[in-house]
Nucleic acid binder design. Structure first.
Lengths: 323, 323
DNA sequence: TTGAAAGCGCTAACAG
DNA sequence: CTGTTAGCGCTTTCAA
């Protein structure tokens, strides 16, 4: 493996001169510089960043985004935006999928690899000890687990607006198709409260509790909605935990011989692009991805020291919601 | 930052003993081991993998998958499968988005980071020099650029089967909505040849050359198909470069007052999950993702030395193709 | 069983 | 302008 030393020898200078050329630091004479450049080219030398960050006691300029699910476009849209922002600041962005099982292990691995920052978009709870370790090893982090988070997405106003509007259009019963547990408890509360406020009935049926994320979103959306309707139960407006679930729900409604939005209105969360690809297009509640990405990114690459942000959302009205 | 030395001091042993405990190598007495473990726990020590791989002259056990587009579910499905396989072998998997601009730069960065392997799923051409460097620095790689690839996906048989079947159902004119250049030239040739063989007309209209990947897939699919149809041009079967493009094409067909598959049949590539989420469901040509993932993964983590694989595909018939 | 010394590829701090 | 020395956090060797 080619190292600085070999380059130095071939160029007939010392290692430091090579370093100076590579890092554009300090003075180096033009002839020396040229010899070094030539040697680098001939030897096809690429510096070892690993060694650099070791000696500089810096973490590698790498931000890792931890995801529970690579197939959810919402995450990808966010990552996409963040990548743009972060690469401009000289950071690389990488994705890492985790499961509830290897959750903590992966985090530890990332600390061991001394990355600069971690954005945890998986909602799996993880060792508080590890969180402390992140800080200790200079790994900045944003996490969104149930107990432990430093950023909160505020769905309340958007949910209220949607429900108010639905009430004005004659909606009576509201359902929420969700997963087993997790963060959505907050959303349930919001929906329930708004239903009371606007005199709607919140249909808290156990048939609307799917086994996401074990089952995949679309399957859960389809299957649970289908069974719900088949059993003769009804609601006029169905919130779905995420948009892919909403896609499944829409398909289930039409499989049941009903129509969206005439018979049932559907609202998803996250505003993924697929919402626009299908017929009817899907109404969705979500943050502004760009704004969210910028908040995350600027924190992760060290702009601000503290951070307990509240990120706002809005409703993107589309065909799955009555005019 | 806590290091082995501190752990050693606190445990009252030498650094080597700590190392032996951590790596489970060599002998260490039970009392010593317990003291070390205790110190590690109290200090919340996490070894620096960066230093380890430096001294061991090993690359970090990390496989990086380079993608042109994070929003294409096909890649994600593949990555998902690979991650499963690779993490079982002790490798981490990460994703990295590239653009035609930072293409080479990113690759260099990955070599500089001394990762174990790179799977290049971006079709952007890149420096042959860099490919040589990969080998030089022990970075295994699979690449699929136009001139330079060591794995080829064989679409020919599947394309032929679909065209044959289409011919039997009365299809006369075949189109292929594609991007500006890239690998798809092979697919064009295949389609053209099959059209000749089965007596169909290949409609090689410039209106079917979209500006993907600059424009996004869905937009290209919708817009170009719409304009094509609006201009009065017709074809009975339209291949689309990828499934998201096909989604756009389907929507454009119905916007134009036509029906899929009665008036136009649509076939995409890649068999993404979204194909099943929409109505009509999309017919698609693709590899078996699991098989492909396993081939890639087993090569990247060093199972075989050479590799010029040919990966087969099949047609997944769905509603967008006539019964 | 344990530790001391040397060195991985690189840089910071000094001297020349 | 250039080189020497020391040392980042760790492992390998060798000796105790």
């Amino acid at each position: 493996m080619v190292t600085r030393k070999e380059v130095a020898e071939r160029a007939g200078v010392s290692v430091m001169t090579v370093t100076r050329v590579i890092n554009r630091s300090g003075y180096v004479s033009e002839p020396a510089r040229r010899k070094v450049l030539k040697a680098i080219d001939e030897l096809r030398y690429i510096p070892n960043k690993t060694a650099v960050s070791l000696v500089r006691r810096e973490n590698s300029k790498m931000i890792v985004i931890i995801l529970p699910d690579l197939l959810n476009l919402y995450y990808m849209q966010l990552v996409d935006c963040m990548a743009e922002y972060l690469s401009a600041k000289g950071y690389g962005v990488m994705l890492r999928k985790v499961t509830p099982k290897n959750n903590n292990e992966v985090l530890k691995e990332l600390i061991a690899g001394r990355v600069s920052g971690v954005l945890n978009m998986a909602f799996y709870p993880f060792d508080e000890k590890l969180v402390g370790m992140m800080a200790q090893y200079g790994v900045r982090s944003i996490y969104m687990s149930a107990e432990l988070f430093n950023v909160e997405i505020d769905y309340a106003p958007a949910i209220e607006e949607a429900i108010k509007r639905a009430a004005a259009r004659g909606v009576k019963r509201v359902g929420f198709l969700r997963g087993k547990d997790f963060l959505e408890v907050i959303r349930i509360k919001n929906i329930k409260k708004c239903c009371e406020k606007y005199g709607l009935e919140f249909c808290n049926d156990p048939m609307l509790i799917s086994d996401y994320p074990e089952g995949d979103s679309f399957y859960c959306g389809y299957e649970y909605t289908y069974e719900f309707l088949k059993s003769g139960r009804r609601c006029d407006l169905l919130f779905c935990l995420n948009d892919t679930m909403a896609l499944g729900a829409v398909k289930a409604v039409s499989s049941s011989g009903l129509k969206v939005p005439e018979d049932i209105s559907i609202i998803g969360f996250d505003n993924i692009l697929t919402d626009l690809y299908v017929t009817p297009t899907i109404t969705s509640i979500s943050t502004d991805v760009h704004e969210q990405a910028e908040i995350y990114a600027s924190y992760l690459c060290g702009a601000k020291e503290v951070m307990v942000q509240n990120i706002s959302t809005r409703v993107y009205y589309r065909e799955s919601f009555p005019e």
